[in-house]
Structure formats: structure tokens, C-alpha cells
């Protein structure tokens, strides 16, 4: 299973390709490709967005679904999805925590 990760051109924020090929800023909303055909399709969509100067550093990320949530296999991508592990008060993890508290 794979998702597409990238950084938004204007501010560098980590984003993922979501439903309808829209870029979303939380990994939970990423579109998961479950077969090679869909993987190829999302990779192509990522490259189109790169060419259109919407995002940079487009990468395909291996993920699994754990307790219903998307979890990247590599620690690197897990940290990218949350924020620096040493600063729970900043980055996406802080925003997500604030959202779930609300």
C-alpha cells in the first residue's frame, strides 16, 4: 500500500495526495493506493502537480493500516507526518491534538 507525500511549494508544508487528487495537510486524509495500477496513477498525479509547481519533492511512501489509521512503514515518514518527535507542541501533531481535543 502506498500514498504520495510532497511538500507544498509556497511554504514547504508536508502534504499528501488525497481524494480527488487534492493535496491535504494531514496524513489521515491521504488516498491509499492498494494495487500497482492505483500506485502508478497516484505517482503520475504527484508528478503532474510537481510540473504544475504546486508541490516539490514528491515521493511514494509505503504504508500500512493500523487500527484504521494510515501508518507509514518508515520512521522518517512517520516523523514527517507528525512533526519533530522532540517538539510535540509544534508541527502537525500539535494541530491534530488541538483538533481532537476540540
Amino acid at each position: 500500500m502506498k500514498i504520495v507525500a510532497a511538500n507544498r511549494l509556497t511554504d514547504g508544508e508536508t502534504v499528501w495526495l488525497g481524494a480527488g487528487d487534492r493535496w491535504v495537510d494531514t496524513i489521515d486524509a491521504a488516498h491509499v493506493a492498494r494495487d500497482p495500477e492505483d500506485e502508478a496513477r497516484i505517482a503520475a498525479a504527484g508528478n503532474l502537480a510537481l510540473a504544475a509547481n504546486i508541490v516539490i519533492d514528491v515521493t511514494l511512501v509505503d504504508v500500512e493500516i493500523v487500527e484504521g489509521r494510515i501508518l507509514p512503514k518508515r520512521l522518517r515518514e512517520r516523523i514527517r507526518a507528525g512533526g519533530p518527535s522532540i517538539h510535540p507542541e509544534i508541527g502537525k501533531q500539535a494541530r491534530n491534538a488541538a483538533l481532537s481535543a476540540a
Binding site: N7, D11, G12, E13, T14, I56, D57, R76, I79, R80, G83, P84, G91, K92
Partner: peptide
């Protein structure tokens, strides 16, 4: 290469 000449990198979460 132009941004790197001006100290701008891309890291995991941001520039």
C-alpha cells in the same frame, strides 16, 4: 541550485 546558493534547503517538515 539557486535557492541552495542562498542557504534555502528543503527538510522533512518545511524549508
Amino acid at each position: 541550485p539557486l535557492r541552495l546558493m542562498n542557504g534555502v534547503y528543503l527538510q522533512l517538515h518545511a524549508y
